[in-house]
Design a protein around this nucleic acid. Sequence first.
DNA 1: ATGACCGACATGTGATCACAAACGAGCCGG
DNA 2: CCGGCTCGTTTGTGATCACATGTCGGTCAT
Lengths: 223, 223
Amino acid sequence: MSVMLLTPRPESPRSDPTPAAHDRVYRGLRTRIMHGAIAPGQALTLRGIGAEFGVSMTPAREAVRRLVAEGALQLSSSGRVSTPELTNERIEELAALRALLEVELASRALPRAHMALIDRLQTINASIGEVIEAHDAVGYIRTNLEFHRTLYLRAQAPAMLAMAETVWLQLGPTMRKLYGRLQRRETPHFHKLIIAALKAGDEPGLRLAVRSDVTQGLRMLTT
Amino acid sequence: MSVMLLTPRPESPRSDPTPAAHDRVYRGLRTRIMHGAIAPGQALTLRGIGAEFGVSMTPAREAVRRLVAEGALQLSSSGRVSTPELTNERIEELAALRALLEVELASRALPRAHMALIDRLQTINASIGEVIEAHDAVGYIRTNLEFHRTLYLRAQAPAMLAMAETVWLQLGPTMRKLYGRLQRRETPHFHKLIIAALKAGDEPGLRLAVRSDVTQGLRMLTT
DNA sequence: ATGACCGACATGTGATCACAAACGAGCCGG
DNA sequence: CCGGCTCGTTTGTGATCACATGTCGGTCAT
């Protein structure tokens, strides 16, 4: 009778066939927020989110709770959901956190950085130029983060990387406002310094370059 | 007729009269985990949590999701909830994070540290001796964290403090195992160094003392 | 005695519902 | 013309339910 019950999931084991609904919603919202696709102060509704992802309120609520826990979303006293509008003090704090965490991550990645990694970084850096040409703010943020993440992945420090990503998440909506403002810009200077320091195995130089790259953009964000 | 409608909340604005159920559950579980009241690897069930707090599964699930997002709980592939058993690599990483964040927090608190703060720290430090006498592991962790939090609150850096607390949360169950092991111990030496550095306004000394205090305990945790 | 199978129970997931609170637009009095 | 009230609608919250899946026990064949 129930012989078929032994293979309840005929799909391939890799790439979970049906990711949990709340996880799909979480990931969808997360990347949007981190890439700056949502403006600060934007209001969201659970029913709206659910409708957008084709699920009911329950998974939408779970995804929102998770994002609130990570500081990516804000809850008003009445439970309304919105992307946070950051104060200057908070922006400075988050910039300091980025500096702390990412300098450490880069430093740990340095001894593990092979030529293949540097090549990939240069490729990513080149594509940053393209998105700048296209005036694609979201694409710029996404590619920039990809550059940093690619480097930090070599640090073999998942907890630290997760914390750095949490900070990125909190800065997402605000970064959109920043990069929407200053349109013209060449491919980031400090990225080249980072790559040069990696090639030279120059740890102090790498720390300084990362710190500068992180600080530079955020400094002009404080109104 | 409806003049009273302008004061929809006759209660005092502080201490929300009926905190949301999911928040009560979240806070309850959170402090338990952070204080090391739950052993690593301990399994939990949504229905069990709900029953314990007198709520249904829904708020229990939200609280759990939030704690999972903060790394305080772990989800097995099938969705089962448990406190994580940390690997040595992860413990070292979290210790490094504590060092990074807390040194920075202490450094920021230093210029704001008045005599009243130092007095409070000394009072807390004294009570640490008592809980050590009583062989109260949970009390020790709680009081120790109170010492650190009291200092870091002066840093006026809420985002950074929140990150530090997240790290504490992840280390909670594992710390229980540690402090359960080594029973006898005098009131922590490095706390006295921290207080001395605060009195002297000695920033390098403070940074070193905090780093030592954070590192010391965690070092003997790596199996 | 040992191992695989199978079935009952436990558990997480997501949808739906009832309810309370909050928001907002319209209305009324000034 | 303006300000405050009011009521309908929107929205979040929590309980409950049906269902799929996982887990653990016993059972039976070898």
